[in-house]
Structure formats: structure tokens, C-alpha cells
């Protein structure tokens, strides 16, 4: 999976900050861009998929097996 040089590192941040920074980043990137998100906040396991569902972005892949969670999101909705 190609990531267009877009990695959002949210490690060491706790709720509500990860979603705040994700929202900002999504607004800044172009439609169709894929974003890799790194997080270690357990709340993001629930929050990031919900964000994608309700804000109409594609959640391409999740890896929450490791201590650092990885989420691949594609911006598909015009903000």
C-alpha cells in the first residue's frame, strides 16, 4: 500500500488530541490521499474508525496488534 509521504504520528498524545490533529491533517490533504496514522492511545481504536464512518473517509486497513496502532485512511470526502 502506497502512502503519499503522509504519516501522522499521534504517539504519546491522549484523547481528545489525536482526533483534533487527525481532523486538521485531513482538512489539509488532497482528496484521494492516503494517510498512515500511528497511535498508542487505546481510545483511537474506537475513535478513528468512527471518525471515518461518520465523516465519510475510507478506512483502508487497521493494525492494532502491536503496541503502536496503525491506521491507513484515504480522504474520500470533500470537507
Amino acid at each position: 500500500m502506497t502512502v503519499d509521504n503522509n504519516v501522522l504520528d499521534l504517539r504519546k498524545l491522549r484523547c481528545p488530541e489525536p482526533i483534533m490533529l487527525l481532523r486538521k491533517k485531513i482538512r489539509e490533504i488532497k482528496n484521494g490521499t492516503t494517510l498512515l496514522i500511528l497511535s498508542d492511545d487505546p481510545s483511537t481504536i474506537r475513535e478513528i474508525p468512527q471518525y471515518c464512518k461518520f465523516m465519510h473517509h475510507k478506512l483502508l486497513k487497521i493494525n492494532t496488534k502491536d503496541t503502536i496502532y496503525k491506521f491507513w485512511i484515504q480522504k474520500t470526502h470533500k470537507m
Binding site: K24, F54, M55
Partner: peptide, 12 residues
């Protein structure tokens, strides 16, 4: 639900 997430986006 979507109403809350959209409102939070506006606040953000």
C-alpha cells in the same frame, strides 16, 4: 452519530 461528529468538525 453523524450529527455529533459534524458538529465537532465545525468546532475544530
Amino acid at each position: 452519530h453523524k450529527f455529533g461528529w459534524k458538529a465537532e468538525e465545525a468546532v475544530d
